[in-house]
Design a binder for these strands. Structure first.
Lengths: 208, 208
DNA sequence: CACCGAATGGACCGATCGGTCCACTGATAT
DNA sequence: ATATCAGTGGACCGATCGGTCCATTCGGTG
């Protein structure tokens, strides 16, 4: 059921989504009600249901999509251009900068956890995010390998996953413990391992 | 305010905590109310408030502590005896086995996210968990190094953190995407990197 | 201008749910 | 035996909150 939206309507809709996202980042999903969103975005109850007919879950799903896009967007332009070791390091600094300033918590995790029961399409959002992120990292590793900056025996896809896991785990630990060193060490270790020589005799594991 | 509990009372209390934990694992924190817990544990409303005077947040805090203990307990005896490469591999298999069977989601993350605002002691639970886990892994790396199974240049503390981040990130990705390969590759890569030779010229980052 | 549908405002409803209260039981100690 | 207090049962209340509904305004098009 595609809705018809005027320019004004579309603007209001995005204002709601972004306002709700900001509110949820600050206070957590569980502590944000429709009335809070209404107040923060200067809208009325009927507008919320006008733009999100299925109510709160509908709105939260839109917020989740928005936040998922943000995760990659705020890593740009670095993430899309990992073509040299120096650029990888710049991306690394950017990652640490992002999560250092975002200790309140990953806005996605709680959102996903809450929406999951009964909304299989929610999982798709985070599955897609992981896949895009993982592929961008793998592309970067491929570029390094093509440039001869790292060992040819490295599998770019596996390396991309290992780095993504380091970021994810480091960020999780940072958020959980408020200790930046977890992310710094995890990410630095994962990247440095790219440059270390040595044959990899890793068994193959297929993904997807 | 230390409460006096008889043996019967203590049994009821743990029945409530464990029942609530199981329920929350199945349905998520947001979908579990006191009435659900009451029904699932064959108790009455007054018992819930008898054993947890501060109400729901009090109960959820107890559940969080319980789940935090579980995280390490279910890795035993492997986690406490990482004294050879073979034993590390056994632990690795155990980790994958655990999280493969637990795809519903990490019972802690949602719990923490919900309790955090206003409960600083909640953070302590997960900070302690991270520290204990990290130290056990570092001990294992030290044992490997002492046995000459890995390079002397490896810093056990940093390696422990890197491995912990790989598990955390891999598990997060597994739960988010329902794709076991993320955890398998992340953990396998992190462990294999221990055995690869090469000088580490990593800058020092202090923790704590 | 007239019209129509989008956009907006806000009162209102009903269910859910955390929390309170009081009555009752049962075990133990003196 | 009986006093006492932990343990138990469950009715009940009040607030919160998602969701509905209708009235009104706005903006573009014929």
């Amino acid at each position: 059921m595609e809705r018809v939206l005027t320019a004004k309507g579309a603007a209001t809709r995005t204002r709601i989504v972004e306002g709700a996202a900001a509110l949820i980042r600050e206070q957590g999903v569980a502590n944000v009600g429709l009335d809070d969103i209404r107040a923060a975005t200067a809208t009325s109850k009927s507008q919320l249901f006008h733009y999100f007919p299925d109510g709160k879950s509908d709105l939260l799903f839109a917020v989740a999509q928005h936040e998922a896009d943000q995760v990659l967007a705020e890593q740009q332009p670095f993430l899309g251009d990992l073509t040299s070791w120096r650029k990888w390091q710049a991306w690394r600094r950017r990652i640490i900068e992002i999560y250092d300033g975002q200790r309140a918590g990953c806005p996605l995790s709680a959102l996903i956890a809450q929406l999951r029961p009964g909304n299989p399409e929610v999982q798709q959002v985070v599955t897609d995010l992981s896949a895009r992120w993982r592929d961008l990292l793998a592309d970067g590793v491929r570029a390094l390998r093509a440039a001869g900056e790292i060992d040819q025996s490295i599998d770019p896809d596996q390396a991309g996953i290992a780095i993504l896991a380091a970021v994810t785990g480091g960020a999780t630990l940072l958020i959980a413990t408020d200790e930046l060193a977890y992310l710094e060490i995890a990410l630095t270790t994962a990247l440095d391992d790219l440059r270390r020589p040595g044959v990899r005799t890793r068994r193959r594991v297929s993904l997807g």
